[in-house]
Amino acid sequence: MGHYFSYGSQPFPFDMFSMSHLVVLLLFLTLLVGLYLGRPRMNQKGKTFIRYTLIVILIGCESSFHLWFILHDQWTVRGNLPLQLCSISIYLCTFMLLTRNHSLSEVTFFFGIGGAIQAMITPELFYGFPHYRFFHFFIAHMAILYACFYMIWYERLHIKFQSVIKAWMTLNVIAVFVFFVNHLTGSNYMFLARKPTNPTIIDWLGPYPWYILSLEVLAFLIFTIVYFIFGKNRLKLKRK
């Protein structure tokens, strides 16, 4: 079974929109519908179980990710700091679920929805089914999305348009910090130094560095679309 956890991806290359990729997307949608339909019958004990299950999955995914690199003697500052948007979202989602803090949830919701959906559809992933990294990648991103929808459907998180501005400005502050980290370490966190290797939506946004400006506009547009879908009721977070 060692090759299922190997560092080289040659035995299991990832093919976008392959059968395994499509099955994962279908599984994600099925579980998401189940999460939504389960709302009316869910008591406090059930909500607590879902919340802490997601916390354990998020922590487990992040811990196993770093452990995998360490065991293969491949962990580096250049590639493994938690500075990709989805890595940041894992930490934010964990704290969001632990605290159910309204201000944190506003930002985390936009980060999670905006980043993880794009990552699920066009993954920057080199390991296909049934490699560990395939399962890790999709389980982690699914947990991010479920955490965000959990806050909307179970914890009554209602977002305002000001939340869009807040999340977008926070993203820019983080991006400035990450830009300098990339410059100092030669890394490519948040793809601010160069485009991803695999085909993604970034390929349509122009050459470097102009695609960064396009990403600014795209991020604001995605956040705004997310708001119009989920921000109809502009109330405060109701804690139960």
Rank of each mutant, 00 (worst) to 15 (best):
L218C: 08
F230E: 03
S187A: 15
L205C: 08
A175H: 08
P199G: 03
Y189Q: 09
R194E: 09
G206L: 05
N188I: 02
K232T: 09
I202C: 02
D203S: 08
I201W: 06
R234W: 05
A175V: 02
F228S: 05
N182F: 12
I222E: 03
Y227D: 04
V181S: 05
K232Y: 13
L221Y: 06
L192S: 14
E216R: 04
H183N: 10
L205Y: 01
L184E: 13
P209L: 08
F223K: 03
F230D: 05
F191G: 00
I225R: 02
L192V: 11
P196H: 06
N198I: 01
L215P: 00
M190Q: 05
F177S: 02
A175G: 15
H183L: 15
R194Y: 04
L213Y: 12
T200H: 00
L221N: 01
I202Q: 00
P196F: 06
G186W: 11
T197A: 10
P207Q: 14
P207F: 10
L218M: 13
P209G: 11
G231A: 08
R234D: 12
V181R: 15
F177I: 15
I202S: 00
F223C: 13
P199Q: 07
L215V: 11
I201V: 15
N233M: 03
A193E: 14
G186M: 10
V217M: 11
W210I: 03
F230G: 03
A219T: 15
G206D: 01
M190R: 04
F230R: 04
I225S: 11
I201F: 03
L213N: 01
L184C: 10
L218Y: 12
A175P: 01
N188F: 08
F223D: 05
N198T: 13
M190Y: 11
V181I: 13
L221G: 06
G231C: 04
V181Y: 14
I201K: 00
F223Y: 14
V226T: 13
I212L: 14
E216M: 10
T200V: 01
N188H: 06
I202P: 02
P196K: 07
G231V: 06
T224R: 03
I229Q: 04
F228Q: 05
N182Y: 07
